[in-house]
Write a protein that binds this DNA or RNA. Sequence first.
DNA 1: TGCAAAGATACAAACGTTTGCACAAATCGC
DNA 2: GCGATTTGTGCAAACGTTTGTATCTTTGCA
Lengths: 330, 330
Amino acid sequence: MTTIRDIARALGITPSTVSRALSGNPRVKEETRRAVEKTAREMGYERNVVAANLRKGRSMIVGIVIPRIHREFFSNCIGGAESVLNQAGYSVLICQTLESVEAEIQALKTLKNYRVAGVLLSHAINAPNGDHVKEILGNTPLIQFDRVFPDLPGAKIVGANCDGAYKATRHLIEAGYRKIGTLAGYMTSQAYVERLAGYRMALEDAGLPFDEKLVYYNTIVRETGYEAGLKAIKAGCDALYSAGAFSALGAIDALKEKGIRVPEDFGIVGTANEGFTALMTPSLSTLNQHPFEMGEAAAHAFLEGRLDTQVIPMELIERQSSNKNNTWQK
Amino acid sequence: MTTIRDIARALGITPSTVSRALSGNPRVKEETRRAVEKTAREMGYERNVVAANLRKGRSMIVGIVIPRIHREFFSNCIGGAESVLNQAGYSVLICQTLESVEAEIQALKTLKNYRVAGVLLSHAINAPNGDHVKEILGNTPLIQFDRVFPDLPGAKIVGANCDGAYKATRHLIEAGYRKIGTLAGYMTSQAYVERLAGYRMALEDAGLPFDEKLVYYNTIVRETGYEAGLKAIKAGCDALYSAGAFSALGAIDALKEKGIRVPEDFGIVGTANEGFTALMTPSLSTLNQHPFEMGEAAAHAFLEGRLDTQVIPMELIERQSSNKNNTWQK
DNA sequence: TGCAAAGATACAAACGTTTGCACAAATCGC
DNA sequence: GCGATTTGTGCAAACGTTTGTATCTTTGCA
């Protein structure tokens, strides 16, 4: 492959001038620049970014660390981030942790070894705190999104979890449901803590009692949602706010099994607006977290060197599953 | 950050020995190796892969180029590939083309500039042929998956498109449907050409006529599926094999709108086993393409330097939408 | 004409590894 | 006990850029 040396030799100048010409340094004569660009094109030159990165001590790569890529939420985040970063000349290196803290540590080390320009992170659910992140990354810019460590400084992009859960719960109340439980997810993650708070606040604002017995923890997948659904039925609930989408699906499985009609006898609102929620019967009311926009926001935060926390609004999408009087039409 | 020089200095040996010790070269004494590993650990050494890559002329990065990351099919492929490659010490650099050939060219150039160890590619739908790929990549190993250029040599991982379409169509015939059309997708992609062939073969093997008028081309998204669905109804079809999943969904929209019962009056089988297909009502019979396994296979083909074509079987998942006598139970 | 300032390029040292070759010391065969 | 082989390290040159400093050339102005 041709190098800047080859170009320099061909033109009778030095590699340094070629380098400066190609990187747009104003100290090289316009005429020289044009000549360099011409021969570079003719010789099919492609700059070796590895060498450039070594010399500069950092690369044009941004690392993205996420639990799993094949979750609509995360793949959308990546999609948003990738399109923004690509525009700005960055490439993205993706690492999945599969919810394992050790894998997360390994991923961060790898990224550090590649001297990435920055890291976008959504941490493994059972990571106790952000110490390992700070220790490994040092001064590499870090942007956290969705799942963030509150104790870690720097840029954060989070959903309006509390507000979203509040809206969802209030919507159930307004629709006429009265004994509303919640599939609360994991309290190890700030996002779920906030959703629980929003749920509680909505109940209290409406003068309804908050009952700890109707809070079903560690429900995040379909199976645990199903089990919690059975318990909620037994406890006499007539509605559920689910902090996840798949857990809501599981609860509906339980309701169908018991012959309880949704939405007439039982209302339910879920959280992530996964594709299936609009297509299932009854269609599931959800909160749209705008994952693509979250990814874009994280990328922009990196590019602009922001250090603050941005909150992405959550929007309630009313569908059949929370429509008590069944006046649904599409 | 500490370098191998620092370690060498600390031990009174040379950087070359340190390098050899750390990379497991058998020509360094066991005792020395242990000493090096110990001080490396103590000094918190992390090898600078950028420098190593420059020297070696290639990196431990594998590039993945796909149309869009937020499609369940592709994100699952990536998931499969990433887990295998990570095991083997590789990292993955992801580039989306958003179905644009220019973006694909740019992505391949970027990967080449990073001197990636290999590229896994699923090309943009409207790319005429693989010339640009060959020209840019040169001798960088290339593994194509799902959407492959038949004219390009080297490793390919494809679905059993013809066989899958055959199974799906025969299933419709056996269920009792008689006038079966197809939502055929784009003939610019080999995969869809093969599916059409399988559909045709199944009809002919069963003594049913193949009617070109019942082939609806360029249907791949929900909207085009809807429109083709209306046409199929008008043409008197009683079933459709759809080469996509979202197009099948669109066709069902059309059937519902016209008050035609699925599956009693009209049967339908789709192709990609997207998550929603199992959850919608009626649930959609589909072909499982095993995207995760395709990604794994692509990664293994890269690691093992395979150059052949592997065919991943497609498995029919019978659900409600093709169950004419409505004996469905779950 | 002379001298300073600016403009353009050259020089050379990095960045942190890897690796072919050389060389010394240790081991072996006879 | 001597030459031949093996074993372990050191030396130094890469890999292809970038960039601070030096040098040379041109221009401007008095």
